[in-house]
Every structure is written in structure tokens, then in C-alpha cells.
Design a protein around this nucleic acid. Structure first.
Lengths: 165, 165
DNA sequence: AATAAATAGTTTAAGCCTAAACTATTACGT
DNA sequence: ACGTAATAGTTTAGGCTTAAACTATTTATT
């Protein structure tokens, strides 16, 4: 019996492996994320959410509506409003009216934004490749496959537990 | 070929598997974290960082110094100050003077804090077990092992890349 | 057409988090 | 002992994020 298992003295764990896995998952994400944030700040004077939003738009030539950005980036709409405002002020993205709907618009990369993102994306990929440099191609594939199962299971049980209360 | 792979059209990736893995890792972490935050808020009216700090203290019967908490939780010292202030105000932890060093003190759980954490930890474990419910025990072990390699590699190359600039 | 409900996006208040500057204390080198 | 450097912790300014309340517009119902 190891340390982590023993310490929940009053609440003996039935599945300590799951808890350990969760802590490790968090640690890995946080380590890599910290590296990426640091690189974006030092080399491009920008932030991860700004980069993420540009990345979403780079994959969508026709731009994306705010709620599409919100869903894809898994953050709230208010958050998207703030980040978009900044990027518009910097001239990296633009708001384009949607013909049939005066409430909505599409956010698109400007040429300047596309150029800047291209530079950043190249560096970014380098950081990520380096982050997983300790794994073989096969291990990367295995990790990807197993996390795929986690993702599907998490999505499928999203709002199932709240009802049990 | 799935969606994630196709989308980096204009920036042909040499190691697209690493990028895909990173995106999936982020997604999984975020999905589970959102569930946990939501549960802590709805059922215990608290937040994840508060829970994490209590969790650290529960494993350290003699308490921890601020910088130890900072290092273990991988956040800045100023952050620890703020969270600790709140928990002290709620009576869940206490600051205890360190005999030989008037700069430092130890943060310890109060009996009330220990009790409250115990309740939360039990629920928390349930959420985590459920989050990984789509995996077999063996798959959990594999995931844990592979993430261990990622973690070690990330830690070993922490400040090696900045020098190359 | 009139009303109600849903949708798109923004604003607000509050908490988290960081980097950098700061205070207080301790350790070290001479 | 004295001056400097290192350490422990806090404060400050600013960016990120959320939930909830809000405005404006569109869709559905009657």
C-alpha cells in the first residue's frame, strides 16, 4: 500500500489508481501548458487564449460565430467577447456581419493575423513535439487512443450525474 | 482520418500526432476539471484551488510552509497567500509559527477543515472514478505509466530550451 | 399581427493566477 | 560585527475565466 492510498484514512479509497492517474494527468497538462504560455509570452508577447482563438480561426477560412468559438474552445461567451475585442484592437481578426441575422457576425483572421499566427504556430508545434519527445511514436498513438476513450466517456456522461441528486 | 488531423491545412505538420495528442490531453483535462469544479461549487460551495490546498494539507499532518504549498501546487506564492487567507477566514486552516524562523510559518488543517475535507474528498473520488469509468484497470495503468514518461521528460527539459535562443 | 420563447452577443461582479516589486528576516562572507 | 545576498511571504497591477443579468434580434405560437 502506497502513501496516497493510505492517507485518506477516514475514506479508504476503492480506486486509488484513478485518483493517481488524475493527478498525473493534471501535472502533465500543467507542465506543458506552462512551457507554452512562457514561450508565447517571451517570444511573441501574447497569451495562450489569444493563440487558441487564432488557431481556431485558421482552421475556419470563412470565420466562426462567437458561439461556435465558445463551444470549440470550451469557454463561456463572455470570455470570447473579451479576447476577440483585444484581437480586433490589434488588427489580427475582424468582425464580419452575417447577412440574414443582425444579432450575429463571423470572426475572421485578417491577413496580418494569418501571418502572425503562422509564425507562432511553427514555434508552437516545436514546443509540443519537444514536450512529447520522451515517447515513441507508438506510445504517442497509444496515449492518443486511450485519451480518446476518456474523452468519449466524459462527454457521454456529461449531465447524467447531476440528475441523481 | 478525423477532423483534428485535417485542419492544419496551411501549416503542414511534421509531427501532427504530437499536436493531436496535445489537443486531446487538454480536452480531457478540461472536461474532467469542469465536472469537478461544478461539483465542488454545487455540492460544497467551494472551488478547486481551495480543495487542492486542503488536499495537500491533509497529506501533511505537520502542515506545510507557504513555499512548499506553492511548489507542490505549481502555482505562485502570491496565489497561495490569497487562497490561504480565505481558508483561514473560514476557519478551515490555521497559520502556526515556526520556532526558529520568524519569517515563515506552517499552514495546518483545523479539525473543522479536516472534517470538511473528508466529506469533499469522498465525493471527489467518486467523480474521478466515474471520469475514468470508460477504461479498464489495465488501461488506467498504461495511461498512468505513459503519462509518467511525459512528466519526467517535461521536468528534465524544463529550462533547457530557453538557452538555445 | 401580437405575444412569448429562444438565440446571439455583451456586460458585470467576483475569483483565480501571474510577474514583479516590496517588506521582513535569516544566512553568509569578510 | 557589518554589509550583502538569499529566503519567506505579501502586495499590486493586470489578464483570464466564470455565472448571471442584460440588450437586441429572430423564431414560434396563436
Amino acid at each position: 500500500m502506497d502513501k496516497e492510498a493510505r492517507l485518506h484514512g477516514t475514506t479508504p479509497a476503492e480506486h486509488p489508481e484513478a485518483l493517481r492517474l488524475w493527478l498525473r494527468l493534471l501535472t502533465c497538462t500543467q507542465l506543458i501548458e506552462t512551457q507554452v504560455r512562457s514561450g508565447l509570452r517571451d517570444q511573441f508577447d501574447t497569451t495562450l487564449p489569444r493563440f487558441d482563438l487564432l488557431a481556431q480561426l485558421e482552421r475556419a477560412p470563412d470565420g466562426l460565430k462567437m458561439n461556435e468559438l465558445s463551444r470549440r474552445m470550451m469557454v463561456t461567451g463572455g470570455n470570447i467577447t473579451g479576447i476577440t475585442d483585444q484581437l480586433v484592437a490589434e488588427g489580427l481578426v475582424e468582425r464580419v456581419e452575417v447577412p440574414g441575422d443582425r444579432r450575429a457576425y463571423r470572426v475572421k483572421l485578417t491577413p496580418k493575423g494569418r501571418k502572425q499566427f503562422s509564425d507562432m504556430a511553427h514555434q508552437h508545434e516545436g514546443w509540443i513535439v519537444e514536450a512529447f519527445g520522451g515517447l515513441t511514436e507508438k506510445e504517442i498513438a497509444t496515449l492518443h487512443r486511450l485519451l480518446g476513450k476518456v474523452k468519449e466517456h466524459a462527454k457521454s456522461t456529461m449531465n447524467t450525474s447531476a440528475e441523481a441528486a
